[in-house]
Design a protein around this nucleic acid. Structure first.
Lengths: 218, 218
DNA sequence: ACAAAAGTGTTTAGTCTACACCCATGC
DNA sequence: GCATGGGTGTAGACTAAACACTTTTGT
């Protein structure tokens, strides 16, 4: 008897100075009408990483996104039909790449919507707990992973970069100290381009210097 | 159709200045005669945390040990009979508590034995990969978790404490700097007791000051 | 001219690193 | 008395934190 299980995706993005998670409104028993993480059964011969890619693609229209396993959840009572184990994954996407693509893809869900991590609706199953754990893990990774860059557009301002940190840490940071620190890290490349369309002084744009980042972490 | 899956335990201890992992010699198809992590199927109505406790108890004779989920492994080809998902857990135990208790408990295993993490035999399934991941994770947790204290006896010398760090980090540390650092942390309580049975100057014993440790991490 | 956010340095306190010798004990 | 690990301090480099004003741009 082989394993029968699901995967669920916690898909993050950064928009309007907030971290947001993609939720879908279920259109099927159980928890019909409730909001839930995008997720589904893994096929018999499908690697679970592929299942996650498939599901996140169906929900965001994006391939090749940053994915990482979070944990398995297998509470005997987590599913009303009996124990169904789920493996949760975290995905990070850029809002620009995704903003007009999010839509319900199958009849299983009515709609998909981005919710700020501080204002989530009631959630199906144990999805609240899954999200909670994912936030904590992301927080820890912040300063020694590419996570911030997967959430931001390719070219970003230092203020945006700082906002990602602030949103996850849940506290405000000193602008000068923050800039000094990232300057020391040395893996941000200063561009000769500036923000457009703002009614105040346009900020310089930066991007990640991948080569320097790699070196720093061997 | 409910989930059918296993749990596997990476059980660490610290002995002879080395980190060791408990392995069992399998006495059943598949991988009969191979060394493997202790693990087994989770019962239909059994929480997986309970299954891990059961399996680690059967193999070490200890209850209430430090347990933490590592990750789920679900490669389609990881098991010769077809995909069986496993959830790996990490457990840390004190060698003193366990040294005479380890034995084969069921007919499924011929024997159990501690192997230093640097000298592991060939392993069944994807267990090498599981161990690899667990070492990396433990390394990261080292300095902000109770992990070192779960591996050491309740009363330990500073040299033993340092050896735990060295074994996991895979490098030697400067004695003076190490002692200065842990002094600053301030959660080691100096005892008025000393090592016995050594043929050189007896080292002072220390133990964890749990109250101070808690405070440090809120 | 005003509103909004960009950008920019210095001082002080704390932490990290490198480094070598004497001490106590058991045999 | 010798072998073995136990135990100790200091100087220099680096990192972290606190803190406020001027500049640029669009309306």
């Amino acid at each position: 008897m082989l394993s029968h299980f699901t995967v669920d995706c916690v898909i993050y993005t950064f928009h309007e100075a907030q971290l947001k998670i993609l939720l879908t409104e279920r259109n099927e028993y159980p928890y019909k009408g409730w909001w839930a993480l995008p997720g589904f059964y893994v096929e018999k011969d499908e690697e679970m990483e592929d299942a996650v890619k498939r599901i996140s693609y169906e929900n965001t229209g994006l391939k090749d996104i940053y994915l990482e396993q979070l944990a398995a959840f297998a509470g005997v009572k987590r599913h009303p039909e009996g124990r169904i184990l789920t493996v949760a994954y975290v995905a990070l996407v850029r809002y620009d790449n995704v903003k007009n693509k999010v839509k319900p893809v199958t009849s299983y869900m009515k709609q998909a919507k981005w919710y700020p991590i501080n204002h989530l609706p009631d959630l199906a199953f144990d999805h609240r707990e899954i999200i909670q754990l994912s936030v904590e893990k992301l927080k820890k990774r912040l300063s020694y992973s590419l996570a911030p860059f997967e959430l931001l557009p390719e070219k970003f301002t230092l203020t945006q970069f700082q906002q990602v940190y602030e949103a996850l840490l849940g506290e405000t940071l000193d602008k000068r100290n923050f800039r000094k620190k990232i300057n020391n890290l040395g893996y941000l490349k200063e561009l000769d381009e500036f923000q457009t369309g703002v009614s105040y002084r346009a900020a310089r744009l930066y991007k990640l210097d991948r080569r320097k980042f790699q070196k720093l972490f061997e």
